[in-house]
Simulated scan of single mutants.
Amino acid sequence: MIQVNHTQIPEKDILAEMQYHPAQSQRDAMLKSAESLIIAELLRQRAKTLGLDIANDGAATSQDDFLEQLLAQEVDIPTASADECEQYYRLNPGRFESSPLVEVSHILLAAAPEDDKARVEAKTLSEALISQLQQGASLAELAKHYSACPSKETGGSLGQINRGQTVPEFERQLFSAEPGLLPHAIESRYGFHVVLIARKVPGQLLPFKAVQQKIAEYLNEKVRRKAVAQYIHTLIVEAEIAGYDFKLSASPLMQ
């Protein structure tokens, strides 16, 4: 039985709450549910102490409603200054680059992920086609004959690609490669791709003014999450909780 400042949290409520906390085991889900309900009860009790008008109808519906009121009244959450945003921009330039562009042609040798035989055959064929290309064969002609991609009608050309336009497993290798014929096929969920990179344009650092607002939003949200965690930590430390042992250092709330 769990009690929060002498207020009981019934087991049935914990079991009902478990549907909102998927976990690797039933025990983990139950612990997460109990923690969530304890925190919700602490917030309700504190709100009541402060005279806030709180509907006591469960964590899922009430906690979000009045948490902002509690924070506004009890927590000082600073906002990021322009200097702080600019410092973050200078220290993290890789986060503010435009996507590189690659001009690509390919031959798709289709093979379903679960078809081991087809994938082995596709890989073997890709090696043979790469060998032919290295000896001067035309990718456009080979694409027309072998490729399962509609791009075979345009010589295998995919045009200019930037990040987010293709599947991740294809992009990871594509954007890390240098221009020219790749010596090995790229494997994806669709099969094996024989790839020729005609041109690669590196990403460019975006101007600070273009990303300042996003940086401010990110930093403000980071500070807000920390403030909420510290506030809840304080409520837990000051509360009398029976039937549940908070390991605060390991709690996701304290991250």
Rank of each mutant, 00 (worst) to 15 (best):
P183N: 12
Q45W: 07
S98H: 05
F96M: 06
I2K: 04
S33D: 07
R44A: 08
E121C: 01
L42E: 07
K144D: 08
S249Y: 03
S249G: 01
N162I: 12
K48P: 00
V223F: 02
G156K: 08
L205T: 13
S138G: 07
D76A: 12
E97K: 15
G94V: 04
K226F: 01
I38R: 03
D76K: 12
S157M: 09
K200W: 08
S25F: 03
D83I: 05
S81T: 15
I215T: 00
S249E: 15
A34P: 01
I38Q: 11
Y20I: 00
K200N: 09
S249P: 00
T124P: 00
K32E: 03
K152E: 06
K247C: 13
Q255E: 04
S33T: 06
V211Y: 00
P93Q: 15
H145T: 15
A112T: 11
E153F: 05
E11Q: 13
A111C: 09
Q87D: 14
R44L: 15
I130R: 08
S25R: 04
E97N: 10
S25A: 05
E68N: 13
S105C: 06
E74H: 07
L15W: 03
A122E: 03
P252R: 13
L174D: 04
T49F: 02
S138D: 11
L52N: 03
K214S: 14
G155S: 09
A128E: 14
R44W: 06
K144W: 10
I2D: 03
Q255N: 11
K247E: 15
A72R: 13
D65K: 06
S151I: 00
F175P: 01
K12N: 06
D245W: 01
D28E: 15
A80P: 07
Y218L: 14
L129I: 14
A59C: 01
P113G: 13
E217L: 13
P113T: 13
V120C: 03
L235C: 02
S33M: 02
A82I: 14
